[in-house]
């Protein structure tokens, strides 16, 4: 697991993709107008132009990710997961199903684990996000990261970021009292390689070690 990376500010992302995005916006706007010519007249009559502009507007977002404060400008439809991966380039958080069914995108928001794929970024105004990149203390891995290596808690590794974020929360919540409880409270994280027994072992080891 790598340490904290410097984040690319939103503006540079816009510079990279601005032209394409502007083009898409303009064309979708024009297409909508072409398809429904009546709306142009109606929009003028009822002063809809402000509302239509509202659709394309970006919203300002103040967010703390792994201890780094960001002031960003995001479209309302961008999920927290896409914000982390595409705008902040923190690709440790994975996109699996993108529908809240697999848990690969699990991050902590104000210390609570959530599926970042089902959270719109703009709804996280003023919140503190912790991703897998923020778990280690410099070059020192988090005890759960050490335990996953020690107990071979993964094969392909795609679900691992989410598993580890969920595992840390599972202990913090007080739901790691037994193997059965761990399995129940880790059920939101799917591992298609089937590393479940080793994941449970890793969590039990951290729990018994009194670290989380």
């Amino acid at each position: 697991m790598s340490g904290k990376k410097p984040c690319i500010p939103a503006e540079s992302e816009d510079l990279l993709h601005g032209n394409r995005r502007d083009f898409l916006k303009k064309t979708s706007f024009l297409t909508a107008m072409a398809l429904t010519p009546g709306t142009v007249v109606k929009a003028a009559e009822e002063q809809w132009d402000e509302k239509i502009a509202g659709v394309f507007e970006k919203v300002s977002l103040h967010i703390d990710v792994n201890g780094v404060k960001h002031t960003l400008s995001v479209e309302p439809r961008v999920t927290l997961l896409d914000l982390l991966r595409e705008q902040l380039k923190l690709t440790g958080t994975k996109k699996g199903c993108d529908r809240g069914q697999c848990g690969a995108c699990t991050v902590h928001v104000n210390g609570v684990r959530v599926n970042s794929c089902l959270s719109l970024a703009v709804t996280n105004e003023g919140k503190k996000i912790t991703t897998i990149e923020g778990l280690a203390n410099g070059n020192e891995l988090h005890p759960m990261q050490e335990a996953f290596i020690e107990h071979d808690g993964f094969q392909c590794g795609y679900c691992t970021s989410g598993q580890i974020m969920s595992a840390v929360a599972c202990i913090n919540e007080g739901h790691a009292g037994s193997e059965a409880e761990i399995r129940e409270y880790m059920s939101g994280n799917i591992c298609r390689c089937g590393a479940y027994p080793n994941i449970v072992n890793a969590i039990q080891a951290v729990k018994q070690g009194g670290q989380s």
Binding site: G100, G103, T106, V112, R113, V114, N115, L118, S119, S166, A169, C170, E173, H175, Y185, S187, G188, N189
Partner: peptide
């Protein structure tokens, strides 16, 4: 119902 992550949200 659901998973811990979803119940938190």
């Amino acid at each position: 119902g659901a998973s811990p992550q979803l119940r938190n949200m």
